[in-house]
């Protein structure tokens, strides 16, 4: 039973782990912290997987757990050895022809996102993932009206950082 559940979890996770990586990239700026947060998200997902009934999509459930972990549970690792800054990484793009425009765009985007506060990061993440306001308000636990107001403010902040 436990083994079946675990196998199912691993399969679900495998198909959606990109979500967790994106969130970790938004909330951390070095590889150690990224790995730390990633691990904490995996722990929380598995710990709660039994309670996941499948009435929502696994990915939706995963957004919630991963964002909640990043915003509320995660403590910055005390072992912040100077490691490679994530901003120095080249973000790989799935593309047949090599074109660095998108890579540069991603780099600019992440660099700007890192300057936002945790809640704004979550809002921008949900926006980039094209989530409807209903889902955004349910995920964060605020009204839809406020989700819209906060989203507009977060977007303005981000625009100002990118184009001061």
């Amino acid at each position: 039973m436990q083994k079946d559940l675990e196998a199912k979890f691993l399969l679900d996770f495998e198909q959606n782990q990109n979500i967790v990586h994106k969130i970790c990239r938004m909330y951390t700026t070095n590889q150690d912290a990224h790995n730390d947060l990633f691990q904490e998200v995996v722990i929380q997902l598995w710990k709660n997987y039994r309670k996941f009934r499948g009435d929502s999509k696994f990915s939706t459930w995963m957004y919630r757990v991963a964002l909640n972990t990043a915003i509320s549970l995660y403590r910055k690792s005390t072992r912040t050895i100077k490691t490679q800054d994530i901003d120095d990484f080249t973000y790989k793009i799935k593309s047949k022809e090599y074109d660095d425009t998108e890579e540069l765009q991603l780099k600019t985007l992440y660099k700007a996102v890192h300057q936002l506060n945790d809640i704004d990061k979550a809002l921008i993440f949900l926006y980039l993932e094209d989530k409807p306001y209903k889902e955004i308000s349910e995920t964060l636990g605020i009204t839809q009206v406020n989700a819209r107001v906060k989203m507009n403010r977060a977007k303005d902040k981000l625009k100002n950082i990118i184009n001061p």
Binding site: Q17, N18, E40, V42, I43, T69, L73, K94, L106
Partner: peptide
């Protein structure tokens, strides 16, 4: 278009990770 970053993590790694101890607040 961001590529799926697997960072070399296998199922075994994920399994091991999921059973490790939480350091949450």
């Amino acid at each position: 278009n961001q590529s799926v970053e697997k960072s070399g993590l296998s199922d075994v790694d994920i399994r091991k990770m999921s059973h490790s101890k939480s350091s949450s607040i």
